[in-house]
Write a protein that binds this DNA or RNA. Structure first.
Lengths: 188, 188
DNA sequence: CAGCATACCTACCGGTCGGTATAGTGTCAA
DNA sequence: TTGACACTATACCGACCGGTAGGTATGCTG
């Protein structure tokens, strides 16, 4: 592992454990066994390091998400594929998923929130497009795509958070439950 | 407003906007128009200040919650009262609710998370007792009170978060939707 | 009036923050 | 052989961190 990768890996672990604000660059370079100028050579700033970390990890998620999210006329199927993509990603990157959740709920004027905001909005936008497409078949859904996307993402994140804390498993039956529960809440 | 209250009020605003770690005590005392030793006179430490803030605000929530949570044989009614208590509290204290959410999702080894942990567990415990009581009437619920409580709290917080961001209103119809959606997810 | 506790101040502590100037080092291409 | 360049170390910057020492004004209690 080269120094750049070592810095990214140490930063992920420390940020996920203690939070972005609570971890100084000195601690990161010590854990990565390099010195500060090495970090600044590759990432320019502490914020730049966080951004690089998010880009590398979210890249994988967005790729899986874009494959899963195509609307083929069956909303339930599409949603199941989306939840499945989220669950797989969270299982493979539990530390990163925790970090990402903490940034999504971070105070609006914090640096971590603002760096993560773009990535959150891109998730939201992907989901909204799915619900807009679905509204083409079911007119009663029209005009609610923002709330649907936010609710769906929130429910998914809620189950992931619960399972990351050890109260459950991210398996197929939970995927089905999530989707059914969401659709019931929408159409009841 | 005396100095103690001014410090608490300034701290709440700054913590909610920027996060606990990102705000130094100097900034708090400047906003409250007092000096640092005044803060340390009343609260002992930065952590003590956060604790006092949580105790004062969560006190109101727990009071409302304990009245709402009694199980009278109708789970749906009890849950509706609980959601209603949460919604009312969040509407009255939007800044604090944001702060509380951010701490609940904060990294596990951060100071803010650990100070808030007790209060989160007390919420969880209150809800668990309700589900244990309800399982006395419906044996199929037995043994799942932890997951039920976590799921229910997560859904409620999810809707509160969405509404605090302006995508919706914390009204009676959303209370009903939350409860129905949760019960459907449990019994389907 | 004495004695004391509360409340609050100015001034300062050692340490850490994010970030940088400078000086090598090894590896290439010319 | 030489110069360019990517990379990394030492040493350092000013600003700020959480916290405290020491002192004073005020007001209550005997």
């Amino acid at each position: 592992m080269d120094n750049q990768a070592k810095i990214l890996s140490s930063a992920l672990e420390l940020f996920a454990q203690h939070g972005y604000d609570a971890v100084g660059v000195q601690r990161i370079v010590a854990a990565a066994e390099v010195t500060k100028p090495t970090l600044y050579h590759y990432f320019g700033s502490k914020k730049g390091l966080l951004l690089a970390l998010l880009e590398s990890k979210f890249g994988d998620l967005f790729q899986a998400l874009e494959e899963a999210i195509a609307f083929n006329g069956e909303l339930q199927e599409s949603l199941s594929r989306v939840v499945s993509a989220y669950f797989q990603f969270a299982r493979k990157n539990p530390d990163f998923y925790r970090l990402q959740l903490s940034m999504w709920f971070a105070p609006a004027h914090s640096e971590a929130f603002n760096v993560a905001l773009d990535f959150s909005l891109r998730q939201q936008a992907l989901l909204e497009r799915l619900f807009v497409d679905a509204a083409g078949q079911n007119k009663s859904m029209e005009g609610h795509h923002q709330i649907y996307a936010a609710t769906f993402l929130g429910m998914t994140n809620n189950y992931i958070g619960i399972c990351l804390n050890g109260f459950g498993e991210l398996n197929q039956s939970l995927i089905d439950r999530t989707v059914h529960q969401f659709l019931y809440g929408i159409f009841s």
